[in-house]
Design a protein around this nucleic acid. Structure first.
Lengths: 237, 237
DNA sequence: ACACCTTCTTGAACGCGTTCAAGTGATGTG
DNA sequence: CACATCACTTGAACGCGTTCAAGAAGGTGT
């Protein structure tokens, strides 16, 4: 048995008990790893190099992280936190839906920008459905919920008036869109990922317009159809 | 350099010359590999096992295929061909947009169904932007074009009347949607991937309706906006 | 002080994908 | 027929992620 898995059955963070020394070593390994990932790239950074640079044995890294991929979870969580903070800054000043959404999306790209080349490899591992790193996996469910919560703030705090049913679903839809933007960004080879910025700037007014249009009488049936489809697909069996 | 790619047709660039014996060995290795992938899964099949089963040395496999991942390209091409054939069957009988699209999508899932568990791992490697297997890579551009061509047939052969600008873009958009369906399918853990079928059955009428609605005067500006966005994002710089 | 238990650390060893210098054998050339 | 050329084949070797039996370090109860 590998023993150290990251998620306990309980929602609480009562993982395997860990003392101060252990926590320190864990952080040391994680920070060293992320630094080397940034400096040399993911594939080029070996577990041996991480261990050596951190001054520990290879096996020790595996005591705290189930695999090399699991080190990415640290990166994942860290950026999530920073994005949340940057988003709150935006949401505190902007009140209309479009600028709120635009600000949050650009902030998300800002946060990830330094890791663009490395994020590609990261995405590869996250794309595997069975991987705990997948954004759809149950193991990363807390992180996903936190990300969706940002978009709930975007919607709920805005002055936009919209169908209550749509309002309920919109945060998750926006998060899905955000995943799409990230996917686009990962593949974006234009300088400074300009195309991704253009995609955001173009898509946000479009979404804003569609949300407004959703209250038109002609579009009512179409909207119901969309919501019904979401409902149908969400069912697990 | 790498030289050996799959293109069966003659117009390919000057590949490495290959004699009859070589072609035979190549096929033997590929078929053995795909069989073992199906039987044991991708990760569990080692290059040593493939070589042993095929009765050649490990190094020989690397003479014909740049990497283990490149063996997947064979699988990829094969299913693409089968899907195309199945799609033509559908397109020969159905004349309206919705059933044409629905038939083609279901046919695509049918083709891939036997490989659902293995396709997940396959997807992982395909998701890496730098991978030649990525559906967006230039190396798989012929395969992508072939796939888009199917959706061009879906649109062009249908009786649906739609904006000429939209008509031009729709095939590529539908292909993008198909990639989304595939992504959903890979993650779909419901029995027989029922949810994916429901997604198709629900999304097709929706798309059909939206295509019709796109001719409404109120939606005209929104449509132009969508098309402008596509134009903006497509530019490479 | 001692024994005991849990947390933490070690590094050799395993099997993997991949590489490469060295070969084998068929074909074309004089 | 010799010989050079080029397609093809080999398997040992390399570096990688990962595992695991063994033990060290530190806390707790007696």
């Amino acid at each position: 048995m590998t023993g150290v898995t990251t998620a306990a059955a309980e929602p609480g963070p009562d993982e395997k008990p860990r003392r101060a020394r252990g926590e320190q070593t864990r952080q040391l390994i994680l920070e060293t790893a992320l630094r080397l990932f940034r400096e040399r790239g993911y594939a080029e950074t070996t577990m041996r190099a991480i261990a050596k640079e951190a001054g520990v044995a290879v096996g020790n890294a595996y005591y705290y992280f189930d695999s090399k991929e699991h080190l990415i979870q640290g990166f994942y969580d860290r950026n999530q936190t920073i994005h949340r903070a940057a988003a709150e800054q935006v949401l505190a000043t902007e009140k209309e839906l479009a600028p709120r959404l635009r600000g949050v999306l650009h902030a998300g790209i800002d946060v990830n920008e330094p890791y663009h080349s490395f994020a590609a490899t990261f995405f590869k591992t996250a794309a595997e459905p069975s991987s705990p790193l997948s954004p759809f996996s149950s193991e990363s469910s807390p992180a996903r919920e936190a990300a969706i919560a940002i978009f709930r703030d975007v919607v709920d705090g805005s002055t936009a008036k919209l169908d209550p049913e749509l309002r309920k679903e919109l945060p998750e839809l926006l998060w899905l869109g955000w995943m799409g933007v990230i996917l686009f960004w990962v593949y974006d080879k234009s300088p400074d990922q300009r195309r991704t910025r253009r995609l955001i700037d173009g898509a946000v007014p479009l979404i804003d317009r569609m949300v407004s249009l959703s209250r038109l009488r002609v579009l009512r049936p179409a909207l119901r159809q969309v919501l019904a489809l979401i409902e149908t697909v969400r069912k697990d069996d």
